[in-house]
Amino acid sequence: MGDTQTVPDFAEEFGRGAASFAELDEPLWNPISTAAVARSRPQFDEHVLDACCGDGASALPTAELVGVGGLVDAVDLAEPLIAIARERADDRMPQLHLHVADVTTWEPAGYDLVQCVLGILFLPDVAAGTRHLIERARPGGRVAVTVWARGALEPLPDLLVRALPDGAASDLDLEDLTKPTVESAETPGTLALWLTERGLVDVRAEQVQRRLEPTPELAWRLVRGTGLQAIVSGLDDGELERVRERFLATLAEDGVTSVDVSTLIAVGRRPEVE
């Protein structure tokens, strides 16, 4: 069921953290995906492309909604995450097709719905990759994109950078690594405009506000299971443990009681005639 292609280094690294990623399903990925699917509104018998599907948090409920007469192509570069999704789906969803593949070169098109939940930021060229996803929808088909809102994951990025070994931060592009949002698309209005410029029409976007209480265990899971992992990816086990200790100590010292995990969800249509 599905294809396997060569996985770039960044996807291999993200895949190695599949267990940490999956540990965030209940507190983070499932609520975000539920909100996204509620707005993309998959229908019975529809054909759907779920791009950058991760471990299936949005693909599995979408497959349930389209039913056995529909089809969901769920695509991700990280084979370990696809393996988790495949295990969860088991044999009860023949309409769900899981693929280890690069969505930026995905050729099938004509989908009733194309959705991408927190995935476009990982595309090598975000604008071009998003345009490619839009072109996978049929004329008149829906495209739904979920991204982090402005301020998402704060204040964790700053705390994590402060916990790095002396000199480690100088080797990182911290502006990119500590900013999980899509540049120039950080509010509902700017995201809608950005997607309109990529080729969608009738785009509606909204912010879904949510916060988490960062217990020490959850705070470190957020580091290891989100894009924040890139900040500590070059550390050995001993350095990583020391960073964890300093990070959690700073979290307590600063009295951090909540982490912003708000998202922006936009839904538009591919024009009938371009």
Rank of each mutant, 00 (worst) to 15 (best):
Thr62Lys: 02
Glu64Lys: 10
Ala35Thr: 14
Ser33Ala: 15
Ala51Arg: 00
Val66His: 00
Gly69Phe: 11
Val37Trp: 03
Asp45Ser: 11
Ala59Leu: 09
Val75Ile: 13
Pro61Gly: 05
Ala36Gly: 14
Val66Gly: 06
Phe44Pro: 03
Pro27Ile: 00
Pro61Arg: 00
Leu60Tyr: 09
Asp50Trp: 01
Trp29Ile: 10
Gly69His: 13
Ser40Leu: 15
Pro42Met: 07
Pro42Ala: 07
Val66Leu: 08
Gly67Arg: 04
Leu71His: 15
Val66Ser: 05
Asp50Asn: 04
Asn30Ser: 12
Ala57Leu: 11
Ser58Glu: 14
Val66Ala: 02
Glu46Asp: 07
Ile32Ser: 12
Gly70Ile: 01
Asp25Trp: 01
Ala38Ile: 10
Leu60Gln: 05
Glu46Ser: 02
Leu65Gly: 08
Asp45Asn: 11
Glu26Lys: 05
Leu49Cys: 05
His47Asp: 13
Asn30Gln: 10
Pro42Asp: 10
Val68Leu: 13
Gly69Met: 12
Leu71Gln: 14
Thr34Pro: 01
Cys52Phe: 11
Leu60Lys: 04
Ala38Glu: 15
Gly54Asn: 07
Arg41Thr: 13
Gly67Glu: 06
Ala74Val: 06
Gly69Thr: 11
Thr34Asn: 11
Gly56Glu: 02
Ala36Val: 15
Ala51Thr: 05
Val75Met: 10
Pro27Leu: 01
Pro61His: 06
Gln43Thr: 11
Val66Phe: 06
Gln43Ile: 07
His47Lys: 10
Arg39Met: 14
Ala57Tyr: 01
Arg39Tyr: 14
Pro31Asn: 05
Ala36Arg: 08
Asn30Trp: 05
Pro27Ala: 03
Val66Cys: 04
Val48Trp: 00
Arg41Asp: 14
Pro27Asn: 08
Asp50Tyr: 03
Trp29Cys: 02
Asp73Ile: 00
Ser33Tyr: 02
Arg41Val: 13
Ala36Lys: 05
Leu60His: 05
Val66Ile: 11
Ala38Ser: 15
Cys53Glu: 09
Val72Leu: 05
Gly54Val: 01
Glu46Asn: 02
Ala63Val: 03
Gly70Pro: 06
Asp25Cys: 09
Thr62Gln: 09
Glu26His: 08
Ala74Asp: 06
Asp73Ser: 10
Leu28Trp: 06
Gly56Ser: 12
Glu64Asp: 14
Pro27Thr: 11
Gln43Asn: 09
Glu64Pro: 02
Glu23Lys: 11
Ala59Val: 12
Ser58Ala: 15
Arg41Gly: 04
Ala35Gly: 11
Asp45Leu: 07
Ile32Gln: 09
Arg41Lys: 13
Ser40Lys: 06
Thr62Glu: 06
Ala35Gln: 14
Val66Gln: 03
Leu60Val: 12
Cys52Ala: 15
Leu65Phe: 10
Thr34Glu: 14
Asp45Lys: 06
Asp25Gly: 10
Ala36Met: 15
Val75Ala: 02
Thr62Pro: 08
Val48Asn: 00
Val72Phe: 05
Ala35Phe: 06
Pro31Met: 04
Asp73Tyr: 04
Pro31Arg: 01
Pro31Gly: 07
Val37Leu: 13
Ala57Asp: 12
Ser40Val: 14
Leu60Cys: 08
Glu64Val: 03
Val72Asp: 00
Phe44Asn: 02
Ala74Met: 07
Ala38Asp: 15
Pro42Leu: 04
Arg39Gln: 15
Asp50Phe: 01
Val72Glu: 00
Glu64Met: 10
Cys52Trp: 06
Thr62His: 02
